[in-house]
Amino acid sequence: MRAYYFDGLPGDQRLLHDSGNPVQPEVLKSIGVLHWHIPVPADGQYDAVDAVAQERGYKNRDVITITKQGLGDLYESKLKSFYEEHMHEDEEIRYILEGSGFFDVREHPNDSWIRCQLDAGDLMVLPAGIYHRFTLDEKNIIKAMRLFKDEPKWTPHNRGEATDTNSYRLGYLKSIAVN
């Protein structure tokens, strides 16, 4: 994974938008973003991913493939909805099996976008309550394993007054507060 500050320039969301200002792993850790690089096993045995899943209490998983061909007419609208700034009330865990894409996360307290470029083998955990968004890159394909603590769910809460006071958002802010 490579992380850097988003350049904020207009243009296709699938472009790099690299400001040239890298983000160190300590910064990501300070906002609760975790990352491992676990090469995708050729034999389909995900022992290292299983170990992370067990450590973090993830009981379920599925695999999702996002492509322009696969989504057809829904492709553009789905990409736009993934790119809306939102948060979840659960951790968001993705292990990239094929392809690549970007997760943008909000740095707190300055509200800057940090772009995380993920490729095959990257496993990322976004904490519940963090504002973020997702997009494919120009290759237009990603295959990812999604891990869940309980039943699979993915409910985005778009940023606004209601999410700013959401108990999961407030819990997130408390968890990253510097004492």
Score class of each variant (00 low, 15 high):
40 V>H: 05
41 P>Y: 14
41 P>C: 12
41 P>E: 10
42 A>G: 05
42 A>D: 11
43 D>E: 13
44 G>A: 07
45 Q>L: 08
46 Y>C: 08
46 Y>L: 13
48 A>C: 10
48 A>I: 13
48 A>V: 14
48 A>E: 12
51 A>S: 15
52 V>M: 10
53 A>G: 07
53 A>H: 03
54 Q>C: 07
54 Q>L: 08
54 Q>H: 09
54 Q>A: 12
56 R>Y: 11
58 Y>R: 07
58 Y>I: 09
59 K>Y: 06
61 R>D: 15
62 D>K: 04
63 V>L: 11
66 I>S: 01
66 I>V: 12
66 I>N: 06
67 T>M: 09
68 K>M: 09
69 Q>S: 13
69 Q>Y: 09
69 Q>C: 02
69 Q>A: 10
69 Q>V: 12
70 G>K: 06
71 L>R: 12
71 L>P: 05
72 G>D: 09
72 G>W: 10
72 G>Q: 12
75 Y>N: 06
75 Y>G: 07
75 Y>P: 08
77 S>M: 14
77 S>P: 00
77 S>K: 09
78 K>S: 15
79 L>H: 03
80 K>H: 12
80 K>R: 15
80 K>G: 06
81 S>P: 02
81 S>W: 01
83 Y>C: 00
83 Y>G: 01
83 Y>K: 01
84 E>K: 15
84 E>W: 05
85 E>R: 14
86 H>M: 11
87 M>N: 04
89 E>P: 01
89 E>D: 14
90 D>V: 10
94 R>K: 15
94 R>I: 05
95 Y>K: 01
95 Y>H: 02
95 Y>W: 12
95 Y>T: 03
96 I>R: 01
97 L>I: 11
106 R>I: 12
108 H>D: 15
108 H>R: 12
110 N>F: 07
111 D>P: 04
111 D>I: 04
111 D>G: 08
113 W>M: 07
113 W>D: 02
115 R>D: 00
115 R>Q: 06
116 C>S: 15
116 C>I: 13
117 Q>W: 13
117 Q>M: 14
118 L>K: 04
118 L>D: 00
119 D>V: 13
119 D>Q: 11
120 A>T: 08
121 G>K: 02
121 G>Y: 01
121 G>E: 05
122 D>M: 14
122 D>Q: 11
123 L>P: 00
123 L>N: 02
124 M>K: 02
124 M>R: 04
124 M>S: 10
124 M>E: 09
125 V>G: 06
126 L>Q: 02
126 L>F: 02
127 P>D: 13
128 A>T: 11
129 G>S: 10
130 I>W: 04
131 Y>I: 07
132 H>N: 10
133 R>K: 12
134 F>M: 04
